[in-house]
Amino acid sequence: MKKIIPKHPFVIRWTHWVNFPVLAVMIWSGLLIYWANDIYKISLGDFLVFKFFPDPVYKSLNVEHRLSEGMAYHFTFMWLFMLNGLFYILYTIFSGEWRYLLPNKKSFKEAWQVLLHDLFISRKPLPEKKFNGAQQIAYTAIIIMGIFSVLSGIAIYKPVQWQTVTFLLGGYESARIIHFILTIGYVLFFLVHIMQVIRAGWNNFRAMVTGWEVVGSLKQLAVESPQESKPFQKEKITESKTEIEKITPENIADENSTEQ
């Protein structure tokens, strides 16, 4: 029998979806600002590996000569970014949600298994829980990154009045590099995150919008007997074949989902 069970609390979903467009505006306006002094590049010795950013990138995104506009957006949306992030952090602390999100001793070992699984190296199933070790690490790291984005942002926005922050981050230019690298980090995070969400399937994505997920009979068995070995579950699956047929294919897919 299918069941609707709550997964993500309202505040977590709200702050997640508010953060998405806000961070997008921050990254875009940050690019408008960065263009005015685009000195970062990766090189090996004298060999230039990659320049941030090649001209076609600027041309296609139309970022040239828009510094003042970039600054205006950046220093407007920074408030939303900070307040939303602060709200999320306070909520996770006071609601106890942090228990699901903070990595623990087991998380790193588990994250390794998840990585092997996601790279199709291991066939071991993923742990059945809200956030696996890899997710705990990723979702905690992204919050720490956010905090450092705010701090390095302050360090370059007001390097005189907040000079202690600037100093702690290694100075003005160092803070600018940190701010930039973190932004590249968000873009990479986003790419992996999207791939994982697609792999995890509809039930998982829907939970981030609605707050609940649908658990079918198969899952119920897994949840009810988490200690059982896999072969035993397979037996059960065969037994309840008639029921499986009634469940939509997407739900079966969810049984093997990565739950990102």
């Binding site: 029998m1 609707i4 829907r206 919008v209 609605t210 707050g211 009634k246």
Partner: peptide, 26 residues
């Protein structure tokens, strides 16, 4: 049991519709 299953699906659809309605509104 089948009816129950169908009722459930109906409930899921309805709840989804409301949530996604609010989502698209936002």
């Amino acid at each position: 049991k089948l009816t129950e299953e169908q009722l459930m699906n109906k409930k899921i659809r309805k709840k989804s519709l409301i949530s996604f309605g609010v989502f698209f509104l936002l």
